[in-house]
Design a binder for these strands. Sequence first.
DNA 1: CCACGGGCGTTGTATTATGCAACTAGCCAG
DNA 2: CTGGCTAGTTGCATAATACAACGCCCGTGG
Lengths: 144, 144
Amino acid sequence: MPSRDQSVTTIQRELTAFARRARAAAARMHPELSLVSFTLLSHMEDQQGCRATDLAAYYMLDKSTISRQIAALEKLGFIERRTDPADHRIQLLHLTAAGTEKLAEAAVLRRHAFHERLADWEEGDLERFAAYLLRYNSTAPDGS
Amino acid sequence: MPSRDQSVTTIQRELTAFARRARAAAARMHPELSLVSFTLLSHMEDQQGCRATDLAAYYMLDKSTISRQIAALEKLGFIERRTDPADHRIQLLHLTAAGTEKLAEAAVLRRHAFHERLADWEEGDLERFAAYLLRYNSTAPDGS
DNA sequence: CCACGGGCGTTGTATTATGCAACTAGCCAG
DNA sequence: CTGGCTAGTTGCATAATACAACGCCCGTGG
């Protein structure tokens, strides 16, 4: 019965509903690390040596926003900037030990919450859901 | 190869990434109607006569935030409040004709964007994705 | 070698969303 | 009627964000 239109509507509605909650949930789980901070930190962990510009592009945030987030994370001692020796304009971002640890802490809390929430999901469904999200996010992340 | 843990991690990561973008995308598509406004309006259309408290609970927003959003939407002429005759504390929220129209406009833009983005998805995948999101959001929306 | 255009990042400024706390008004049970 | 509860509003503070102007460094073309 769900038409293509209806599926699309549901997807946008539910994704949006999720978005509304994510921040609050993050704030509850790890007040020390906002959702944005957590996400950026997480990204940096995966992409050791990424640039601020990369983050800005990926998350559709202004470079100034990223700059401030990075400054805050550095002040907290969670990341360090290493100027690219080959191009002094560029800062390569790396997690510090403290950052890795902090991220792990938050991740544990988040994972716990998500696991609880997804406890009764079959593994196959989880995989498919994850795959859909990846696929969704991989398409046209720009704002053309 | 994706373990349960990994799927869960991916889900949170990708949902979060989506969340980061949704607002910016909404701002681009319909600057008149923020993502929150759109979502609330959309909710009100489905649940004619819902209360502010319902919205606050569903979207995990403070009642004051909802109150202000509602005030703004009313000022724009998109909704009207009808005091519940049975309980004068309660305001039942209804879309006006203008609100319905505005919402439809925004919905068209959004649907267009989403459709473009999801153009190459098979209908079955869309349905499953939508179902997963619904299922996800339906579980434990509270913050216990 | 030097100047210019462009990319990367920072800082100043303003806006906006949001939460918390205090408050008002209306309901209901004792 | 009074106390306690619920719905919603408002004052206040904060945090996230965008935009614009700027500084720094790169490479290229004269």
